[in-house]
Nucleic acid binder design. Structure first.
Length: 552
RNA sequence: GCACCCGUAGCUCAGCCUGGAUAGAGCAACUCCCUCCUAAGGCGUAGGUCGUAGGUUCAAAUCCUACCGGGUGCGCCA
């Protein structure tokens, strides 16, 4: 699209690359579709940028543009609206679900380690962020033709199970456990986590690693209960995984890994523990084996990474994990690199910030502030239901399904519109609000469009006599989608898609408000705009993992 | 103590990577618009020393340095 602009600017004497670098897409539509700032030319031409702009505009070939004008030190280019509208709308209606996609990832595999809840604890909102962001990144990558492997790597191993077993041995019984398993398990964890049981807990985990029968039985029971609960939550969220894995599966590979580290001369003994010294890299020390011989998180992660490389031959492996684990992943990747694995550079920690409560404080398990995902979901769905009931009388199933979708849109969008790497306030009331910059706003906009499309037959042949301002703004936005996808993918940034979706919906609502569609002289053209809008918004929502609905 | 992240409107956030035209949204406040395709919408008003101080530049919210405030991490948790 910018080719014509570059061409027109060749008379500046600059190379194509230089021109391309300087060309901007103005934030303000009144400045045209492309703009060329003349500041840099001022030096070489020894004239004021304002004069240069005026001078160049006179000499530029304006063929194919609606308008080319000098405004201050800028030259603004306006593309031909009718041509643009025609191209974009036809493209969208032809490509449909594929509009915005590309084939840059063809033949490549990306492994995404995401969600990964700790099964000794209830599914809290801590793991929600990883789930939502990982899911969206997977969709974005798929849209670019990558093959993605979403792995839910469960925290089903480690000292926390020692803690749970201690809690159970001291206070628990199976009867109560079966009654309200999730909350009961949380209690067991809290009990077993007390300082006085620290050694006992470590001992129990050691026993578990050694295959002790009782420890194994309890561990299996905890795991089974958690998984059942987690699966119900994933189903409601509409998130699926390609692989369910877990730390426990790698228990048997630990020895081999430790031997490999030893052979490669990376291992050192320190206070009875085994470590890899990364002080030279400024990363401190990585603890590979505790004094009692039990393995740690990083030990298992090393084995896991190597295993995944063999299994999936990934071009990239993304760890969708909180920023508080930054050091861990730096250590992990550095050790892999030191072991001679050149693919270590293809591993990326896609960090995300914490959820804060409304006081700006971290949600914490310890202080009993844990918010159960189950409850959050139920609460959100109930809120959605009561809103729906205000205007619609639906039959039970329809009501439930619509409420679920609105709830998902609320939570997903509420999260994804924020910059991934920064902390954010998790404020459910704001997310579910049916006004403003929210998930429901997006669904509502789509429902408005769909309701028009239902009322009339769409014809593929439309003639454009003129393009007014609101139409033009919306079409511009529609045309931006493919490049938004590219940058969102490159930056691993679902929030770019989220912002786009919101802007698009906003442009549509402005258009909707000021342009009569059905029954107007421009009906065919405007219906094509509406149809294109609905399509592109759906595509964007799909990339966010947000389900769409026809009516709202 | 060291390392990393954040500080933009009363609140929640975009924009910063890749410096450019009057710093954008939403909520809250104050108005206006349903004889018209879903008012869960739209138009408008008000609200800003872009943490502070320097520096680089024709141009800084954006790049660099220092400082202040908040968060996170730093060997036997994950």
């Amino acid at each position: 699209m910018s080719a014509s602009v570059i061409n027109a600017l060749k008379l500046t004497g600059l190379s194509e690359e230089e021109i391309e670098k300087l060309i901007e897409r103005p934030k303000d539509q009144t400045h045209g579709d492309f703009a060329f700032p003349c500041f840099t030319l001022a030096k070489t031409m020894k004239k004021s940028p304002v004069h240069i702009a005026q001078d160049l505009v006179k000499r530029i070939d304006k063929d194919g543009f609606e308008k080319v004008e000098a405004v201050g030190p800028y030259i603004n280019f306006f593309l031909d609206s009718k041509k643009l509208a025609n191209n974009i709308l036809n493209k969208i209606m032809k490509e449909k679900k594929k509009y915005g996609s590309n084939s840059s990832g063809k033949g490549k595999t990306i492994v995404i380690d995401m969600s990964s809840p700790n099964i000794a604890k209830p599914f809290g909102i801590g793991h929600l962020r990883s789930t939502i962001i990982g899911n969206s990144i997977s969709e974005i990558k798929k849209f670019e033709s990558y093959k993605t492997v979403k792995i839910n790597y469960l925290g089903d191993w480690g000292t926390q199970f020692g803690k749970m077993i201690v809690g159970y041995k001291k206070f628990g019984n199976e009867k109560d456990l079966r009654k309200d398993p999730i909350k009961y398990m949380l209690q067991l964890y809290v009990e077993g986590n007390k300082e006085e049981y620290e050694q006992e807990a470590r001992d129990w985990f050691r026993k578990l690693e050694d295959g002790n029968k009782e420890a194994t039985r309890l561990w299996k029971m905890f795991k089974e209960i958690s998984l059942k609960n987690f699966n119900a939550i994933y189903k409601k969220l509409g998130v699926e995984f390609d692989v369910i894995s877990g730390e426990s599966l790698y228990n048997k590979k630990m020895d081999k890994l430790v031997i490999e580290l030893e052979k490669k001369g990376l291992l050192e003994r320190n206070d009875g523990a085994l470590i890899v010294d990364l002080n030279k890299e400024g990363l401190g020390v990585a603890l590979i084996k505790k004094t009692d011989g039990a393995t740690l998180y990083i030990t298992r992660d090393l084995a896991v990474a190597i295993d995944r490389c063999n299994n999936y031959k990934f071009s990239q492996m993304l760890y969708e994990v909180g920023q508080e684990q930054k050091l861990h992943f730096k250590q992990l990747f550095t050790i892999l690199d030191k072991m001679g694995y050149t693919w270590a550079k293809n591993c990326v920690h896609v960090e995300h910030g914490l959820y804060l409560d409304q006081d700006g404080k971290k949600f914490s398990t310890r202080k009993g502030k844990t918010v159960l995902m189950e409850e959050i979901l139920e609460e959100t769905i109930e809120l959605a239901k009561s809103e729906i009931k205000k205007r619609d009388n639906l039959e039970e199933n329809e009501l439930n399904e619509r409420a679920r979708k609105i709830a998902i849109a609320s939570i997903f969008y509420g999260d994804l519109k924020n910059h991934r790497a920064y902390d954010m306030v998790f404020d459910l009331e704001r997310f579910i609000s049916f006004e403003g910059d929210t998930g429901p706003y997006l669904l509502y906009s789509l429902a408005r469009a769909n309701s028009m499309l239902e009322k009339v037959k769409i014809s593929k042949n439309f003639k454009i006599t003129s393009v007014d301002n609101y139409e033009r703004k919306l079409i511009n936005e529609l045309s931006n989608f493919p490049e938004i996808v590219v940058s969102a993918s490159k930056e691993l940034s679902p929030s770019s898609i989220a912002h786009y979706a919101y802007n698009l919906a906003q442009k549509f609502n402005e258009f909707y408000h000021s342009c009569q569609v059905i029954g107007s002289k421009e009906e065919k053209f405007r219906l094509a705009i509406v149809k294109s809008f609905a399509q592109v918004l759906q595509n964007a929502l799909h990339l966010l993992g947000i389900p769409t609905l026809k009516k709202m």
